[in-house]
Amino acid sequence: MTGIIIILLTGVFLPLFPMSMIFNAIVDNIKHPWLRVLLFAVWPLIGLLIVYNSKVVIPDWLMPMALTTSALYALRMLSLREVTQWSGFLATSLWSLLWLAVMHDTPVGLLYSYAISMSTPLVLLVLLSAGLEQRFGAAYTGLYGGLARTIPRFTGILVTVVVAAIATPLFPTFFIMLDMIVETISATPLAAMALLLIWLLWSWAGARLIQGLIVGRASNVKILDMEITTISLYALILLMLIIGGIYLSGVIL
């Protein structure tokens, strides 16, 4: 009984539906960008901390539940238009897969690096969403469009961050997904298929987000583009993510 309570509690942080709704409700209600950043950065780490300190035995039924949560949020991402909300749903979909890594006895240190690797692009996306809100009053896809012509530097970073978040090579999440598929394919082929389907939904949702924001004619109003120093900072973090991904591939594959 205690085990189930712990799992339910952990299901808030390593999302399991319906507990996953708590995280998204908090994301929706926090308006300050740095608080959102903090939330995205630490949320899955709390979950991992609980799992490892409680030494709870993970039941088998958790795998389908985690996969269902991930698939549900990946599917729901397709019709989202608000960038922060989109980041929240992607976070839910990504973090719920950490249960699979926990079940495969992944070393603790590696698991934390999985969580950080998954969260970093999301943190950047939350910051970019704040940047959009600051410039346009809202971060909605399809609302203004044409960002590629209006603020090209900002768009370049935004597109790269989205690409990083949806597990594209050479970013770490790509290698994590690859590792999870390798781990599941023999014992539970259906789980591997589900992982691939979720991955496909992320790509679809990512493309819809990008298209909704960047495509269209340039705005007539002069909008301030991202400064070179800020771009350099984002580029540096993205480069570190790529290096981290390549390093991670050497460790896990």
């Binding site: 690859l178 598929i181 394919i185 298929m193 691939l196 790509s203 679809w204």
Partner: peptide, 20 residues
């Protein structure tokens, strides 16, 4: 993009099976 991504999936599955 989406057709190519659909095409990526069997290749990834094949690779995972061969590695295992």
């Amino acid at each position: 993009l989406i057709t190519y991504r659909i095409g990526d999936l069997p290749l990834i599955l094949a690779a995972a099976l061969l590695y295992n």
